[in-house]
Amino acid sequence: MAVTLAEEIMLLSLDDESGAVRERQSAAWAVAGGILLDLVLAGRVAVEEGRLRVTDPTPTETPLLDERLLRIAAWAARRRRDPKVTEWLTKDHTKAVRATTDSLRARGLVREEQRRVLGVFPVTRHPEAEGATERELRDRLRAVVLEGAEPDTRTAGLVALVHGAKLHRLAFPGVPRKEIAPRLDEIAAGQWAAEGVRHAIRDMQAAMVAVMTVTVLTATT
């Protein structure tokens, strides 16, 4: 069973040794977006003009995606019209992080540890249990973004999510954002996928930028 986009983003975000989530808020938006984009790529959900709808409720046989597909279908069925992508991301982003981390643990890619902060406050951490998957992921991202390799559709989608959520430091540590931003723009807008998927990727990226902007403005007012 292939690692999902959401799981890949979570692997980039989790500190390998401490298991803490880095850039938690931005990563949460990208994780929720990754699940939605994987459902688009699987032909289960369509994203058009900033709105989403379930086009095929058939399970994908990937538990993380199928659970979310059921939730989206039930939620959307109560709406008068197709809901906005931003509405679903706002509703699901924190839950998606937990579901994705649980999926990584079930796959044996991370382990769960209970710790106490300052010896008092209990916290749950997920340090790395198997590093080969993340190494392959980072090698693939470096090849596409830093070395100019042609991305496949899923990698292009992953790059667009990382770029939209401003997770450059997690994906490319030590590389200044301004040095890779033009290449990230090129990949996100490129002709790497069918037209419908390209439009979905563009809409997903725009939705993440929108919800993150609202979050920042709310936090500063």
Rank of each mutant, 00 (worst) to 15 (best):
R169L: 10
R169V: 12
R169M: 04
L170N: 07
L170A: 13
L170M: 11
L170I: 08
L170V: 11
L170G: 14
L170S: 14
A171K: 12
A171N: 10
A171T: 13
F172E: 07
F172I: 07
F172H: 04
P173S: 14
P173A: 15
P173D: 10
G174T: 09
G174C: 13
G174I: 06
G174R: 06
V175M: 04
V175F: 01
V175Y: 01
V175K: 01
V175R: 02
V175C: 02
V175D: 01
P176R: 09
P176G: 08
P176V: 09
P176L: 10
R177S: 11
R177P: 10
R177N: 04
R177E: 11
R177H: 08
K178W: 11
K178D: 13
K178Q: 12
K178V: 14
E179W: 12
E179V: 15
E179P: 06
I180C: 02
I180T: 05
I180F: 05
I180L: 04
I180D: 02
A181V: 15
A181Q: 15
P182A: 06
P182S: 09
R183P: 02
R183I: 04
L184H: 10
L184M: 15
D185H: 11
D185P: 00
D185F: 01
D185I: 01
D185Y: 07
D185A: 05
D185Q: 09
E186S: 13
E186G: 03
E186W: 08
E186A: 15
I187K: 04
A188D: 14
A188Y: 07
A188K: 04
A188T: 13
A188P: 02
A188M: 11
A189M: 12
A189E: 15
A189L: 12
A189W: 06
G190R: 02
G190W: 03
G190E: 14
G190S: 07
Q191R: 05
Q191I: 00
Q191N: 15
Q191F: 02
Q191K: 03
W192N: 08
W192A: 03
W192V: 03
W192G: 00
W192P: 00
W192K: 00
A193S: 15
A193Q: 08
A193P: 01
A193M: 08
A194T: 07
A194P: 00
E195C: 00
E195S: 09
E195F: 00
E195H: 02
E195Y: 01
E195T: 06
G196Y: 00
G196I: 00
G196S: 12
G196A: 12
G196K: 07
V197H: 06
V197S: 07
R198N: 09
R198L: 15
R198T: 11
R198G: 14
R198W: 11
H199W: 01
H199V: 06
H199K: 14
H199C: 00
H199S: 07
A200D: 06
A200C: 09
A200G: 11
A200R: 03
A200Y: 01
I201T: 13
I201Y: 00
I201P: 00
I201H: 02
I201N: 11
I201W: 01
I201K: 08
I201S: 12
R202Y: 04
R202S: 14
R202I: 03
D203P: 05
D203K: 05
D203Q: 07
D203F: 08
M204K: 01
M204P: 01
M204E: 07
M204V: 10
